[in-house]
């Protein structure tokens, strides 16, 4: 049985005149025990999708189920079995770390000690601050506390909506390590993120843009779909370089990428042509080498097609 199954979900906002499709005909499924990532920028429809799956919103049409329970009919069953961490920090800022945990444990009809094993690894990191009010924690600590609260009743499926947004790189890395640990405990996890580089840690990802799924596959599978040759180039005058590359007709796309510009070429034959063109242009210290595309390159290509 799939942990999450979504079939032809359509969801729109606004009045008749200006109807905006938050989700247009989305279908996918998450296997039990899988760490599944929904990768997409703000406004892609990630939050709407999460709210439909956590029974908070009703879709216009389509069907969805969590662990076999229908999100509309079996609302109560689902609410007992899932853990949810909304995008905004949503714990009680004026309660201490411990009070928040005990409160949510009781709300979910369990106790802090009952499932302590599950959250132990995460909790020990915030334990030194257990008497501090949640509002006074740092961003990373807040995320950890929110995760503990979402896990306190040992949910079967965990929904994490943008858990790493606005969190610094160190905390983000720690957070993903924690998710790997939870996966080992057999919890199915559906997580969304706007950070493309986080896709690689998921078992499978769905790239979501403007309410449409661009691609669903394992990260390696998504990358394998990127067929064009990709070249990273660098010069002293980066802006002039980019403008020059964009004028070349064998270049499909070019964009800044870290310290380089990534150049998507139409075919293998274009690689030497690019080399020639750039050497002819006087842009100073040109270096170029072929690179493997990553999820972000794929996302850009899929977005433009």
């Amino acid at each position: 049985m799939a942990a999450v199954s979504v079939e032809n979900i359509i969801m729109s906002y606004g009045k008749k005149k200006q109807k905006i499709n938050a989700l247009s005909d989305i279908s996918f499924s998450v296997a039990a025990g899988e760490l599944f990532g929904i990768i997409g920028p703000d406004g892609a429809g990630k939050t709407s999708l999460f709210r439909i799956l956590t029974t908070l919103l009703l879709a216009d049409s389509g069907q969805a189920s969590v662990n076999g329970f229908d999100v509309v009919k079996d609302m109560k069953q689902i609410r007992k079995r899932i853990g949810y961490m909304p995008g905004r920090f949503s714990l009680y800022q004026d309660l201490t770390v411990e009070e928040n945990l005990h409160f949510f444990a009781t709300i979910f009809q369990t106790s802090f000690s009952e499932n302590y094993n599950l959250i132990k690894d995460i909790y020990v990191q915030i334990e030194p601050f257990k008497n501090r009010r949640a509002g006074q924690l740092s961003g990373g600590m807040k995320q950890k506390l929110a995760l503990c609260c979402a896990l306190i009743h040992r949910p079967e499926v965990l929904f994490l909506d943008e858990p790493t947004t606005g969190v610094d790189a160190v905390s983000r890395k720690e957070f993903w390590d924690m998710l790997q640990g939870l996966k080992k405990q057999g919890i199915s996890i559906l997580v969304s993120t706007p950070y493309m580089d986080e896709a690689n840690i998921c078992d499978r990802v769905a790239l979501l843009q403007k309410g449409k799924i661009l691609s669903i596959d394992s990260p390696a599978g998504v990358i394998a779909h990127f067929k064009n040759p990709l070249v990273a180039v660098k010069a002293k005058q980066m802006l002039a370089l980019l403008e020059k590359i964009k004028t070349l007709d064998f270049v499909q796309d070019a964009y800044p990428f870290g310290e380089f510009h990534h150049v998507v070429l139409q075919n293998e034959k274009a690689v030497p042509s690019l080399e020639q063109e750039l050497e002819a242009a006087d842009l100073g210290h040109i270096t170029m080498h072929k690179v493997q595309a990553n999820i972000e390159d794929c996302f850009i290509q899929l977005m433009k097609n």
Binding site: R51, T54, Y84, S90
Partner: peptide, 13 residues
């Protein structure tokens, strides 16, 4: 406003 209602609604409470 704080978003805690979301969590409460999703709980079995």
């Amino acid at each position: 406003e704080l978003g805690t209602m979301e969590i409460l609604l999703v709980s079995p409470a």
